[in-house]
Amino acid sequence: MLDTSITMNPDVAPQQIIKTVQLAEALNIDSCYIADQGFTLDLYVTLTAVACNTKRIRLGPGVTHPYTRHPVVTAVSIASLDQFSGGRAFLGIGAGGSRSLVPMQIARSKPVQMARETVEIARLLWKGEPVTYAGEFYKLAEARIGFPCRKDIEIHWAARGPKMLELGGALADVNLLHAIPRFELANVVATVRRGAEKAGRTTKLQYAAMLVYDDASRAIARARTVYRLVDSSDEVKAKLGLTAEKLAEMRRLVTTSGPNSAAFLVSDEILSHYVIEGDAADCAGQIRQLIADHGLTGITVEVPDPANAEKLLSFAADVLSRL
């Protein structure tokens, strides 16, 4: 059975976020990811509010990162969310993106090690025992969570760089394949699998799809693609034919005026690598092909505009029902 989920930024009114997740729940979507973008509504406040207004859907960051929250804070937050939601929480983690780190002027140094330590610490703490830990970045002495918590809270991992991908395979329960151009998917999946094999474990592969079904959804997708281009590896940028000049202008516009102002720099050709486009049958066909080609275990539907998600979610439900 395919795992289904939605992912969104908490950058609209609180009631709209809750309404959108409730709608996803009503459409039998399994999980919901909420992004940790630093300047939007807060991740954990939002997740808690959503938890209190839903019954079944599973909830977690989509994704958080180790640069602005101490691993203990993250582990305690997730365990708390798990308590408030009746065991529905998971920890989604990645390396952090420019959208929050650039304005905070935080350099993304050693993301692999930072993320690894966060996951290790969280898992140790969730066992309920005192933890003493000596990592490169974090050290703990007899640290212990003071309330009962679930030991097997899932780790969902989002990565793009090869080392992060391999570590995700080795560490995570679910690898979220997010913001990856389709021509990179085979490489990415192979890298994750290599990590899992080395560690002697299996991992689930959840592919995040941006669905485009009309002019409006295409325009939104274009703006949302800006950050993923800015944050791509040099190889991907080169394959997409992004010149240094174009990237510099993209970076300037997106940091000063937001992704809408830079959307025009995302050509149709570039966009085509990041979206699933067509009517419900076409989109389902393309996704079926991806599942077959890459052994995906789940599909995440990106909700780029949670304030107006009804149309997208009903389209997505139609697509998912055809898989």
Partner: peptide
């Protein structure tokens, strides 16, 4: 401003 920076060609 938001309209003018967001608007696409169409």
């Amino acid at each position: 401003s938001p309209a003018s920076i967001t608007m696409n060609e169409r």
